[in-house]
Structures are given as C-alpha cells and as structure tokens.
Design a protein around this nucleic acid. Structure first.
Length: 416
DNA sequence: TCTGGGGTCCTAGGACCC
DNA sequence: TCTGGGGTCCTAGGACCC
C-alpha cells in the first residue's frame, strides 16, 4: 500500500524564536514580515486571543499586542533556514525518500511500512525532533499526499499524530472537513464548489461530474479530487533546481531618485546571482520591476522590463549592467517608489548552457565570483560587493525586533 | 507614519511554422 | 460568393502554496 507521512512544524518561525527565548514560551508569540510590515506567524496562544489573520499590518495591531503581552519578533531567516536544515536532516533518517516541501514541512514516503505500528512511529518522530531541535511538529499519515495533509491538520488538533488508512475512518473525517481547507483548494475554487453545493471534503470526494470539475478547477482540481478518493496522483518529487530565482523588497521609505533605485537593483542582482551560483545554474533572462505604493491613493506606476542575455550567465557584474539598462527604460521620474525586485528566468544547469556564437569571449568571470562568494560566506553577506550597491542604502528596510543568528554566527551565540 | 517575499503549475491566446 | 489544416512555442495572467 502507498503511504505518505506529512511532518509540519507548529508555527515554525515562532517555535524557532522560542527555542532561544524561553521567556516567550508562556506568552502569545508573533513574527513579523520583512520591513516589520505584517504579522506572518502566530502561535496557538496568539490565535486564541484573536491574532492569526495572515499579513495583518503591524501598525494596526500594536495596541492589541500590548494589551495581551505578546512577544514580537522581526523575521530572522538565517536562523529559520538553519533550524529547518536540522529538522530535515533528522527526518531523512526516518524514510527512504524525503521530499522537503517547504521550510517547515516535508513528505515522507512510508511505502512498505504497512506492518509497522505507524502511530507509534509518528510519536517517535515527534519526540526525537522536539528533543534534538526544540521544534514541536504534527505528523499526519495516510494513503495520498492530500489525505496526509488533512491527517496532519487532525494531528495538530489532537495529540500530535494522526493516522488514517481505513476508508470508513477517512470518510468520517472528510465529512467534517471544510472544502476550503483542503490543500490545493483556494478561495476561488472553494467559491466555485460552493455553487455546486459542495461544502465538505466528503461532498467533493463523491461528486460525480468529473468533467465539470476539470472545466472549473482544471487538472489541478481533478487531481485533488482523485487524491481524496485514495488514488495517488501526486508522487514524491525530487527537489530539483529552481526555475525562477527572485529577490524583491519593499523599501523602508519612499524612493524617488534613480540613483537610489540603481543601488537597490544592484543589491537585488547580487543576491540572485549568489543564489543561482549556489545552485550551479545559469539564466538567460532577467526581469526588473519597480512600483509605487498600492495602498496609497495616488497615481500608480508599475514599471517592468526584461533583458535577454546572449548566453547563460551567473555573473553578478553582467546582471547589474543588464538590470541598470532595464531600469533606464522603466524609470519614470516623479513617482514615489515603494517596492522593487529582480527575477531570473530561463534557468538551466551550468553545463547545459548555450554559448554565444558571436561573442565567445564574454564568458563569466567565474574566478572573481568564486572568491567573492567564499569571502561572503565566511565573513557575512555583502562583506564584499559591487560599488554599484551603494554604501548608505537609504532604501533599505526596517527590522526593529530582530533576534540574533544564534546558530550560524559565533558573535551572536546564545549567552547563559 | 507604518501594509511581505518567494515560489509552482495550468490555460488561453498570439505568433509563427510548413 | 468564395478564404485550410495541423502543429509548436512563448507569454501573461490566474490560482495556489508556504
């Protein structure tokens, strides 16, 4: 029998903070987005006192945060990424095949584990992770990925582990499970299903007109329906290389000057170039965008443009030049820009890249990039960077409640 | 005053080919 | 009055995910 386990960390960002801030463990805890803009992670204690709406603006909830003595943290992705790696490494020991689905969750193939006491196995995984990393998780086990996601939600409501493999038992759960909460069914699809009278996962499972589902929800929706029926359509996947790589940011304050935007864009390029080199790939097109603050009732402008490289590249300097060229085209003076970004497209592995027939000598400066990457890995991000990134970086973002990089930087290690 | 960031997949429709 | 048929590739936009 096919069997899938889904392990999902509870309020992952908050749990990471709590590992190093014991004083937050008895308080409702919230983590903010970049720029301290919105609340994006909540513990169940925070949800219990009314927080939990995704991306609620921080400034709107400040009063309530004081009222309920909520612990607040700026996001610290260096810390979360490292904690995630620790969790995944342990999980890899519990399955022949692990699919790291996101920073805080992973599918485990449990095919061939039919004779195990799977409930006990789930408990062991939980205990081990909590002991070794301090991160609490839920474990859901069932016969398809979609069902194991549902099992995981049940696990979080109950003792932390939920096993469902018998049809009768599955149906019992599905009858009480809102269709909107199914993995792969968002608000738009839920609305369409509602019009067909489908409100629970069970209604969806037994709905007969498959052609209509295909038409309304496309192939994706049909696959979800099959998975609810216990027919596995979504196999375990290798985590392959990224097909797009982006770095985009809201600015700390409004930006008017082209020179500031040039700095920001150069910095975005530096980040994406690092990422693509780490993946050992090259890209052949690069998109730049800038736009105004859509929350303000002023004239809006959205500028976007793409540069096509003649051959695949992962060279920071080339990307900055290209991005500055695009910026020249899309910049309009007089607007207050609030956000910008750089996206790399048409990504292929380095060794599969096409060379430029007409300019064979414009190869990437790989030695330079290699040395820069080494220095920055050792001494911290942007220790060495292109002068185009600027020194003052007046556009950069805010982060007032940031915790230390406890696990990745000797200078910021936990003190007792 | 203050409103996140980074991805994937699918489809329709246009451009283009012979 | 009459105006082919069968493809591929690319892109924008929608929907969804964490």
């Amino acid at each position: 029998m096919k069997l899938y386990g889904l392990v999902d960390c509870n309020s992952f960002y908050c749990s990471c903070e709590r590992v190093f801030h014991p004083e937050a463990r008895n308080r409702p805890t919230i983590v903010l987005s970049n720029n301290d803009g919105c609340a994006i992670a909540f513990t169940k204690e925070a949800k219990a006192v009314g927080f939990g709406q995704m991306c609620e603006p921080f400034f709107k909830i400040k009063d309530r945060i004081r009222e309920y003595n909520v612990a607040v943290f700026s996001s610290n992705y260096t810390l979360y990424d490292d904690m995630s790696k620790r969790v995944m490494k342990i999980l890899a020991g519990y399955t022949p095949e692990l699919e790291v689905y996101s920073v805080d969750e992973a599918f485990l193939s449990l095919e061939g584990f039919d004779n195990y006491d799977l409930f006990e196995y789930g408990r062991k995984i939980r205990k081990d992770l909590l002991c070794q990393t301090g991160i609490p998780v839920g474990v859901g086990i069932s016969t398809t990925k979609v069902l194991s996601k549902i099992a995981n939600k049940m696990a979080k409501k109950n003792s932390g582990v939920w096993l469902m493999t018998q049809e009768k038992q599955i149906d019992e759960v599905l009858r009480k499970f809102p269709v909107r909460d199914i993995w792969g069914i968002g608000s738009a699809s839920a609305r369409k299903l509602q019009m067909l009278g489908i409100t629970t996962a069970y209604d969806f499972k037994v709905y007969k007109n498959e052609n209509l589902i295909q038409k309304l929800l496309t192939k994706t929706g049909r696959e979800v329906q099959e998975e609810l029926r216990g027919v596995s359509c979504l196999p375990m996947e290798d985590v392959q290389d990224k097909k797009n790589i982006a770095n985009t940011r809201s600015f700390g304050s409004d930006v008017y000057d082209k020179s500031d935007l040039r700095e920001a864009v150069a910095t975005f390029c530096t980040k994406v170039a690092e990422k693509i080199r780490f993946q050992e790939s090259v890209c052949s097109s690069l998109t730049v965008f800038i736009h105004t603050n859509s929350f303000k009732e002023v004239e809006q402008y959205y500028g976007v443009g793409t540069h096509q490289f003649m051959s695949g590249t992962s060279d920071t300097v080339k990307m900055i030049k290209a991005a500055h060229g695009v910026l020249e085209h899309i910049y309009r003076p007089g607007f207050a820009y609030k956000k910008g970004g750089v996206i790399l497209n048409q990504i292929v592995p380095k060794n599969e890249s096409q060379l430029d027939l007409f300019n064979p000598d414009t190869a990437d400066n790989e030695r330079l990039s290699g040395v820069v990457d080494l220095i920055n890995q050792r001494f911290g991000p942007l220790t060495v960077k292109s002068a185009a990134c600027g020194i003052n970086q007046s556009w950069k973002l805010r982060s007032d409640y940031k915790s230390r990089r406890f696990t990745t930087n000797w200078n910021e290690i936990l003190e007792i």
